[in-house]
Simulated assay, not measured.
Amino acid sequence: MKRFVKFLPAFLAAALLAPGHLGHLLAVTPPPTNSEPAKPSSITATDLFGDSVVAKGKGLQIKRSELDQAVSMQSQAGAQSQGIPTAQLDKSALDFLIRLHLLLAKATDSEKSNSRVLAQKVFDDLRARSGSEETINRQLRLAGLSKEAYLAQQADRMTADTVIRREIKVNVTDADARSFYETNAARFEQPEMVRISHILLSTRDENTGAELSSDLKAVKHKKAEDVLKRARAGEDFAKLADEFSEAPGAKQNHGEAKISHDDQSLPVEFKAAVFALSTNQVSEITTSAIGYHIFKLWEKIPAHKLKFDEVADNLKLALTNKAQQAELPHYLEKLWKEADVQILDEKLKK
């Protein structure tokens, strides 16, 4: 249930993403959206020392090239900008790879096959939301990834998730879920929301993310004016969104969305415009840092508390994931010992 998603990040962030856990394996990562191409490092450790084996164990071998790639991905995700030393980044990436390999070694061929199918489905859904496969491929190229490499990474993460769920048995009952619901009532309060449709005429270059020139922005604004006239003349807003909107996913959801005042991911101008509308009203053209927006408001949803029946299934899943994450370090330590993992690079041992 989409409304329940707002609750999950606050509740599960620590469990799924805590340092030393493998929680980031459980998340299916969308392609990066960097506006600038990733800057390759001038010289990698592989360039200097060859593709040596940096860690090994029973059924496990990690080479320097694989570690370099993992470090590069962490760097692109912003780890270096947070001041993490390179040596620590190397050790963190190696720890991640060892844990991933240990889990993948426990997977069946059927589980791996199912994960590849699911990874492709997720990619297809992303492609539908973005409007074209080229849009996603362009984002992947900016991060130095091929489609095949991205799909392989996502399949591995899904396989690791499957192994965790199979191997770490947790039984969360309806009573457990209801107890959490009743003792954490504030977490289930939903703020006022609006259901809208949205058309975006972007003022950013689709390849680089750079701001368009004044002349090109003027062309986009003129197009927005024409679309606004047609919307106010009574044309089907969903069809206009399908035809003109450049927002990600517009062609899949016809520009429709639910938003709240609490949504920090949206521009202030965006929220101010939609919450000022009356039902069935079409907005003026709203300008933000990413382009020109036109909104139509369909429904205002008053603040309310989610009922237990609405959240029960997702709540049980969240509590199960949390309990599994609590046991995960112990399970991984067991696998580490059984595989007799050895780190061969002396610098990575320290």
Rank of each mutant, 00 (worst) to 15 (best):
D125Y: 06
F123T: 04
R116V: 08
A143H: 03
S113A: 15
D125A: 12
R116E: 11
G131P: 01
R127V: 15
V117E: 05
L126R: 05
R127M: 07
N137P: 07
S130A: 14
S113L: 13
K121G: 14
R138C: 01
S113C: 10
S115Y: 05
R138I: 05
R129H: 11
A143N: 08
S113N: 14
K112H: 08
V117C: 06
T135M: 10
F123H: 08
N137F: 09
A128Y: 02
S113V: 13
A128C: 03
L142C: 11
D125K: 10
S130W: 06
Q139T: 08
K121D: 15
K112F: 07
V122D: 10
I136C: 00
R127F: 01
N137A: 13
A128I: 04
E133T: 00
R141Q: 11
E134Y: 01
A143Y: 01
L118E: 13
L140M: 03
A128S: 13
K121A: 15
V117I: 13
R127D: 02
K112M: 09
D124A: 10
D124P: 07
E134H: 01
K112W: 06
D125L: 09
Q139K: 14
G131A: 04
N137W: 04
T135E: 09
A119D: 04
Q139L: 08
L140K: 02
V117S: 11
R129C: 12
L118Q: 12
D124C: 05
K112Q: 10
Q139C: 10
A128M: 07
V117H: 05
L126A: 06
F123C: 08
V117P: 04
R127P: 00
Q139M: 10
R116T: 11
R141K: 11
E133V: 03
R138H: 09
S113D: 11
Q120V: 06
S132C: 02
L140D: 00
S113R: 10
A119Q: 00
K121T: 15
V122H: 11
R116H: 12
L118R: 13
V122G: 05
